[in-house]
Design a protein around this nucleic acid. Structure first.
Lengths: 232, 232
DNA sequence: CGACTATTTGACTTAGTTCAAGTGCTGTGG
DNA sequence: CCACAGCACTTGAACTAAGTCAAATAGTCG
């Protein structure tokens, strides 16, 4: 199964061949989306959702002073708004970071899934629970860990998620985020993000440049970050 | 309807009289629980969940260095583990803070709800989405706001949630948390929590002692906190 | 009363921010 | 192919919010 959306769901639940077929079908009509395009706006009505098939996106909330908190990021296979039957408005803005391919899913399609397939309903429920778990982990990370450990934890999580979709090899991956993005995820400034990377390099845990990261000591990084292995 | 669980769900979705009856029935056999009792343990298996009918509880994650992050708190009407059909282990530990009354819900009961009542399924889905929204807001709060504003935001949220269950009058409420608890929710130290309260008092936004809070200027507090009104 | 826990305050240290100036890519137009 | 503009990253120096440590105060419960 090469479809990243279905592959992701299969990590959490079983799906019949029929259900898998339904999902693949729903996701087969894709659109190419430019970088920095808004897919869903905080507080805006949305009728259905989207599945990200390639590329990267972020979910953020804005404060009135102009600060933003990136509350989550999306890698291929991730989705939003598939439970939108229950909310009129989105909790956060979703925007692409890179050129992406996306399948938009109508409300009717989702309703059909829920009416006809308990397996798909269960899969969507699982994905929402996973999401909650990510958010709890992110809150714990931002609330409790000092800068370098916080960055290390974030990189461990990113590594796991990229590995799950085949975008990582031996601890090496392309970094889809700018330092500003990372700062807005981890609750510090761009300058501090830069210094936290410096620190991890000094400690011999990783090498990186503007566009990529090579984790030279994966276990060391996990240990330094107190990365919760049961979580991912 | 005096049942806080049903009342909470009705804030988000419609439920037929039949569905309401089912929920009330499921929640009618209650247990009295002592303060500081664990209801659910992080990483532990759980077969079913609980509904909190009176009292307060917190949900927290522990780090290996002994720090904890309180990721959420529970007021009467809140629940956990009702979607546990899909996860083997809990994401966080739940423990009571005060003497509480709790109804434990078996897996069989939940499965029955999901099989027989789309309305209840929708309600449970809504509660999980609400939960996610709280977590996003909490992450944004901890990630972006300086101490006094962060505390102010937290108090605005607490005020809203207590009002919804009738535990607030005119900006006054009993504080179920110690300063240590608040510190562990907001990502600062006990000393800093104390100083943040001092600051809000200096600003004339509230009065408080160990056990209660009187918000003397609700609008001022919301404004100071940049409290997102659409969210609650 | 005495033990215990929660809160408060002061003095000091430090992690992280701010400000400002740089470097170094990368894409674009001439 | 080069000049230049723009953005991301980097560094240093000064500053500030928050943490740490330690001690005092104040409720609470047996």
């Amino acid at each position: 199964m090469t479809n990243p959306f279905v592959r992701k769901l299969l990590r959490g639940v079983d799906l019949t061949a029929l259900d898998q077929g339904r999902l693949v079908e729903a996701v087969s009509r894709t659109e190419d989306i430019a970088p920095h395009t808004v897919l869903m706006r905080e507080g805006g009505l949305h009728d259905g959702g989207y599945v990200l098939l390639s590329g990267f996106a972020i979910c953020h909330k804005l404060l009135t002073n102009g600060e933003r908190q990136i509350v989550a990021y999306r890698v291929p296979g991730d989705a939003d708004g598939l439970h939108g039957i229950h909310t009129e408005s989105a909790d956060y803005t979703v925007a692409t970071l890179t050129p992406s391919t996306v399948a938009f899913i109508s409300r009717g399609t989702i309703d059909g899934w829920l009416a006809d397939s308990p397996g798909i309903a269960r899969a969507l429920w699982w994905s929402l629970l996973t999401e909650r778990n990510y958010l709890c982990a992110a809150l714990t990370n931002v609330g409790q860990r000092p800068g370098p450990q916080r960055l290390a934890y974030f990189l461990c999580e990113l590594l796991s998620r990229l590995r799950a979709v085949g975008l990582e090899r031996n601890g090496s991956f392309d970094l889809p985020f700018t330092y500003r993005d990372i700062a807005d995820m981890l609750g510090f400034t761009e300058v501090h993000a830069c210094r936290a990377f410096n620190r991890l390099r000094e400690l011999g845990l990783l090498l990186n440049d503007r566009t990529s990261v090579v984790v030279s000591d994966v276990d060391g990084l996990k240990c330094f970050a107190d990365f919760d292995l049961t979580c991912y």
